[in-house]
Design a protein around this nucleic acid. Structure first.
Lengths: 343, 343
DNA sequence: TTACAAAACGAAAGCGCTTCCATGTATAAG
DNA sequence: CTTATACATGGAAGCGCTTTCGTTTTGTAA
């Protein structure tokens, strides 16, 4: 028999206070004297107390949980996003329930009124173009909804300016001689992932190149699924049409990784015959010497969480959008003329 | 203002019964007269009532939720698995909380005592080799644990015999002339995904080929990440070493898909110059004419859910293992001598 | 020191359920 | 027709919290 968990009453008794005070300590209510709070905290840790979240939910009339709806790809991106979200929400003693979208019917079920997603106090939606799937492009819920890594005029959103990222890539790569190439990622899961991210980045890239007076023929854009192997195929494809040097803007670090692998296999020197710029700024790019456009993923997640908490706390204004910009990090894959590239 | 949700009291009042009876109807308690039950059910639907799960949890002392811990790959597989699990659990009025393992530290956090995963009534773990990460190879929880798509002597498990699948593949492909090849999938996420599935399938394949007196040189095994593009690279690799026909056992349908794509690109006729056998039995293999070893994924999920429910209901016996076998489905990618392959 | 507002606190009243116990009703046995 | 037994039911108690309300304590100004 597992010994029963201690309750708020035992803590109150041990700390010689009422249960109301214990609850106030739990919820960071201001009117508790510091020394009382200390005493309560001490009692808690000596008993190994942790509050029963279910009781909290029924008493509070809220679930103290939010739903995060996200696609099942790009592990690393979503891991970082979650990191940022969690940080903000845990301060508010909120939990996150994850809803990976495995398929369109499943999304529908998530949004049905009996499901867990529906029982939460708010929705964080991290899927581009998800709204397109829904009637009226609106989520069928009374609860607040915030988009993250996506933009819509109907909802609060926190997103990165991918188009700008593309232009920054162009600006950076334009310094080099040789032809320009791009790898555009394309998600496959039918409508669900009507992800415009890949398009936007490459569109920005194209735009930037035009401004710089450089060309990007359609045949120099390789459309790839989101995998390292896609990057390898892309480089093979480019090698079939042109001679080095190749200036390649990979729509994502993972694609760039594949290019690195294939370049090594083909004996091409990265930084000279292959100049390569990724997108995402994942930690491992540092050790690989990969230049990249770093996205402030964690901050974006944190901001989205804040927007949602504001709504949950009753904020009623019109939708707010928080736009983030990527940061260029230059490493040896785009062997810079000198140090960090300056604007 | 959203109108307050109806409670059990309103239902009781409308149906002219006590709240106890309503609760009994909710929980399928046997001692409710059919006509009373009807009346209560009618009242519920006329009020649009649905029970408050949080209240249920605090009153019942259980969370009526189980955790499903799963890797972030192979969407399709886990979608189907979830389908099977859901079916069983929803009958028992249980919810599923999903915990995708984005990274090892995150797994640790999931298992920490304050987290949601810990608050649930049981764990369903769908990750090969996950246990290896943990001290003593045991999950740090008092709650029942059931493995799905994985086996361990310490826990109840439901799994598919991958080795057998490999042998079946060998038996099937051995009818053809030409050299043998295999694509072995390998997960990348460090320890986390120490997934032996790919190995087992290929090991079984090798074993079966040996019994059939056929060879599988090491150089004919291409180790690939889990992506369609991996399959394309594999075929390129095989083409560099040998001439057609190629008899290829792809460790997964997704890899086989890549082989199909590359074969078309290279102008190789599938079923003649390239004989290809997948693994998984995903629905789309039918339209692609891909032969495959179908796994009873949904059934496996359902069975795992049943094992877990048994434990939650108090079953105390020693670990039970439920083994499933794949089924060979022959299509035109392994142009059969005649109809369906018979044992 | 007294007077009074503000801050800190204890305890009671819920939150919406499950479960238990007492009561009532129908059926079987005597 | 009576007594025993099972089944059906209503309602109170209780799950562990939050929140409100009223009381006590503290701090501050007179």
């Amino acid at each position: 028999m597992a010994k029963r968990k201690p309750t708020i009453h035992e803590v109150a008794h041990l700390a010689k206070v009422g249960i109301g005070t214990v609850s106030r300590v739990l919820n960071n209510h201001p009117s508790v004297r510091p020394e009382t709070r200390e005493r309560v905290l001490a009692a808690m840790s000596s008993l190994g107390y942790s509050p029963n979240p279910h009781a909290r939910r029924v008493a509070g009339g809220r679930s103290y949980t939010i739903s995060l709806i996200l696609p099942v790809i790009s592990t690393e991106f979503y891991n970082r996003l979650l990191e940022g979200i969690e940080q903000v929400l845990s301060e508010a003693r909120y939990e996150i329930a994850l809803f990976p979208i495995f398929s369109p019917p499943r999304l529908q079920r998530y949004l049905e009124s009996r499901s867990l997603a529906y029982q939460t106090d708010g929705l964080l939606v991290a899927s581009q173009g998800l709204a397109h799937l829904l009637p009226d492009q609106k989520f069928p819920t009374e609860r607040p909804v915030v988009l993250v890594d996506a933009y819509s005029p109907r909802y609060d959103s926190a997103y990165v300016d991918n188009r700008l990222g593309g232009r920054m890539a162009a600006q950076h790569l334009a310094q080099f001689s040789g032809e320009m190439f791009a790898i555009q990622m394309q998600e496959e899961l039918d409508e669900l992932m009507r992800n415009t991210v890949g398009q936007e980045r490459v569109a920005g890239f194209r735009e930037g190149l035009r401004q710089a007076g450089r060309k990007l023929p359609d045949s120099h854009v390789f459309i790839s699924r989101f995998s390292a192997e896609g990057g390898r195929l892309a480089l093979q494809h480019f090698m079939r049409q042109s001679k080095p040097p190749y200036n390649i803007f990979a729509g994502a670090d993972l694609l760039a990784l594949g290019v690195l692998e294939e370049a090594e296999r083909q004996g091409l020197k990265v930084g000279e015959q292959v100049r390569l710029l990724g997108f995402d700024g994942h930690p491992w790019t540092a050790t690989k010497g990969l230049s990249t456009l770093a996205q402030p993923i964690e901050e974006m997640g944190a901001e989205a969480a804040r927007l949602l908490m504001d709504r949950i706390r009753g904020y009623k204004g019109s939708p707010r959008a928080k736009r983030f910009e990527p940061t260029l990090i230059v490493r040896k894959s785009t062997q810079p003329p000198q140090g960090v590239y300056a604007d």
